[in-house]
Design a binder for these strands. Structure first.
Lengths: 201, 201
DNA sequence: CCATTACTAGATTGATCGCTCTATTTAACA
DNA sequence: TGTTAAATAGAGCGATCAATCTAGTAATGG
């Protein structure tokens, strides 16, 4: 008899998820219909339901994937470079098409989390995950004497994370905003916040 | 013959808008149905359409009202107190029920703005409005020698505004987060960013 | 090469959507 | 108080929703 190919199955599932992603960015979780997703993926509704039991499952899988890959990407960025450079990189690229779509999805997930406890839990976990990555970097930098030892790493990391969210929201609130000067000042801000205070003369 | 009472008409309209607001916070713009709004307002669908021509009009009116009252409230807060205190107040109250609902609505508007150019324009205008209020305060404070004259008021105000958004997003991403230490560090951050650098000894 | 099963399409389901229509009540002016 | 239009209710419209069902095809193991 014929056996199911788990690899092809997973590939198809991923293909549907990326199609659903495009629809969700365009129309939102509630605004995108199963028919839209099917059209985008080039399949029929009956076919789609062989891979996902419900629309909620698609939203859940999409949200979880977006959050975990986002956190993973941020982790890689932090490993490869200085944290301040990593922060600047994220902010600098906030207007980039893909990153903008990523953030729109994040916002969509934030809204959905208020109605979907599972998604809320994943959101909370991944947010803490990113904060933890930042906090660990801060702790290490404190040990190296690079940043103010008086700062609490957990609190400071939450603020830096919030700064990223805030910067990305700027470009959504006002797409025409000129980010060059803002980015310069953001670097000044992070520097003044983190660097050890000069000893009193 | 009977004449229309414009005051009662406006009151009823406002009543419907506040009912719609509750539905939108709960279910989102797309998720809330006309039937939901009617039930919440205690009226019939036919009745509702005597006050608004379409659901889109309700969303638009709700969004515009939320944005303008939000900007106005912020303006009042800035007039009555020192800007740093005003910022702290907004952040400190981020977990407050009403303010949380306000921010959820803001996020919903941000999403909708991607599909509704009118709402996008209002969003952009009100965001610039708030930034302008902040920038004016910064300029005045620079003239008084209270903050670093080397900072660009426009860029700095954008950052402070983003900081507000970021702080409010923290409590949505992780409702259990302890904001007390974060708020302390936020005050430190704003102080270090804005205060004039100590002259080199 | 046949049996079995995965894969796929598309019509169709009942429910719900935004919205309209008709009918009735209420209230203000003449 | 009679007339007229505003205020209100609720049934019902076609369209679309998420999801299912039926049926046919493709591909694999024996």
């Amino acid at each position: 008899m014929r056996r199911v190919d788990p690899i092809k199955h997973a590939e198809k599932k991923q293909e549907i998820l990326t199609a659903a992603r495009r629809c969700f960015v365009r129309d939102g979780f509630a605004g995108a219909s199963i028919a839209d997703i099917c059209a985008e993926a080039g399949i029929s509704p009956g076919h789609l339901y062989h891979y996902f039991p419900s629309k909620e499952a698609i939203v859940g899988a999409m949200g979880a994937a977006a959050l975990s890959t986002g956190a993973a990407q941020f982790g890689e960025l932090m490993e490869g470079s200085h944290a301040l450079a990593a922060l600047a990189s994220v902010i600098e690229n906030a207007k980039n098409r893909n990153l903008r779509d990523d953030f729109i999805l994040i916002l969509e997930i934030l809204m959905e989390a208020g109605r979907n406890p599972k998604l809320a839990k994943i959101l909370q976990e991944q947010s803490r995950n990113v904060r933890r990555i930042l906090a660990e970097f801060l702790r290490k930098s404190q040990a190296d004497g690079l940043i103010d030892p008086g700062l609490d790493p957990e609190a400071a990391s939450a603020i830096l994370f919030g700064l990223l969210d805030g910067a990305r929201m700027m470009t959504i609130r006002d797409p025409k905003i000129d980010m060059t000067k803002v980015l310069d000042h953001l670097k000044i801000l992070v520097g003044r916040f983190l660097l050890p205070p000069r000893p009193a003369s």
